[in-house]
Design a protein around this nucleic acid. Structure first.
Length: 269
DNA sequence: ATGACGCCTATTAGGCGA
């Protein structure tokens, strides 16, 4: 029986294929003392998900995968309940899974990258963002602290990109997608990055090509969005960029945050 | 440079991601 700690540590990582990354992911979970993890791009079907290996490492898991692409999972030291698979843009892609654990509602999202403006994939990206807005809107005023974490594939501002001028109006930085993410934020969600409020937010993704990591050509596209109640509990936020420098690593770095588990004064919900 | 890197699927070449 685990004793409730005063804080809970939540991690989030686009792992780019869980099976090849499992040793690195387990190393990350252990060294960063992660209690709850949100994983994207697991690229593994449910029948092949390494549930037993993770159980032996100390985590329950909820997962929704498919062959070759996409795939999301939530790991927790505590049992997961109310697990739902959400097809937010009616494409059938395994891109959103939600569960409740240790009193937190956790929603793990892998937003489509969008490819090019004239492709269906870009319309599906905007449609996913519209669907996400509506799905999470009721949670803003809910007393259960809610966390939306994942790979948003959107750099919200030019300051979130290594070269804002070069990236302006390209996919991941364009006005339509930024508007949709900002609309979600304006509805009451807090980006965990705001807790550390740098001039430039720390990057979370560097392309495998072009020596992007070596040149520090990165973008901030991974985040946690916190409901007001969760935002009230936010203690720390960090980007663990060094994992991007490992051999055989993902093109994303993991992010993490610490939330207090104490009660806060209840407003009149 | 219709490239590059790395993973996937399926068999050594093509699709996709970002």
């Amino acid at each position: 029986m685990l004793i409730s700690p005063p804080v809970v540590r939540i991690g989030c990582w686009n792992v780019n294929a869980l099976r090849v990354r499992l040793p690195l992911v387990e190393c990350w979970l252990k060294t960063e003392h992660i209690d709850i993890a949100l994983l994207q791009e697991t690229k593994v079907m449910d029948k092949d998900f390494p549930e037993n290996a993770l159980k032996n490492t100390g985590y329950y898991s909820a997962f929704w995968g498919q062959k070759s692409y996409n795939g999301v999972a939530i790991l927790s030291r505590w049992p997961l309940s109310d697990v739902v698979h959400l097809d937010l843009n009616d494409t059938g892609a395994a891109r959103c899974i939600q569960a409740t654990t240790q009193g937190f509602r956790v929603c793990c999202v892998y937003i489509p990258q969008g490819q090019e403006f004239d492709r269906p994939a870009f319309r599906e990206k905007l449609s996913f963002l519209n669907g996400l807005f509506h799905h999470i809107a009721p949670y803003v005023q809910d007393y259960t602290p809610t966390i939306i974490g994942g790979d948003f594939n959107i750099a919200l501002n030019d300051e979130d990109v290594w070269d804002g001028d070069l990236w302006r109006n390209r996919v991941m930085c364009s006005i339509p997608e930024r508007k949709r993410l900002r609309k979600i934020l304006w509805n009451g969600w807090t980006m965990a990055q705001w807790r550390i409020k740098h001039q430039k937010n720390p990057a979370t993704w560097w392309a495998y090509q072009h020596g992007a990591w070596r040149k520090q050509h990165g973008l901030c596209i991974d985040s946690f969005l916190l409901s007001p109640r969760a935002s009230d509990l936010l203690s720390r936020f960090w980007v663990s960029q060094h994992w991007r420098g490992e051999q055989h690593t993902s093109d994303h770095a993991p992010i993490g945050m610490e939330l207090y588990t104490r009660n806060t004064t209840s407003p009149t919900f």
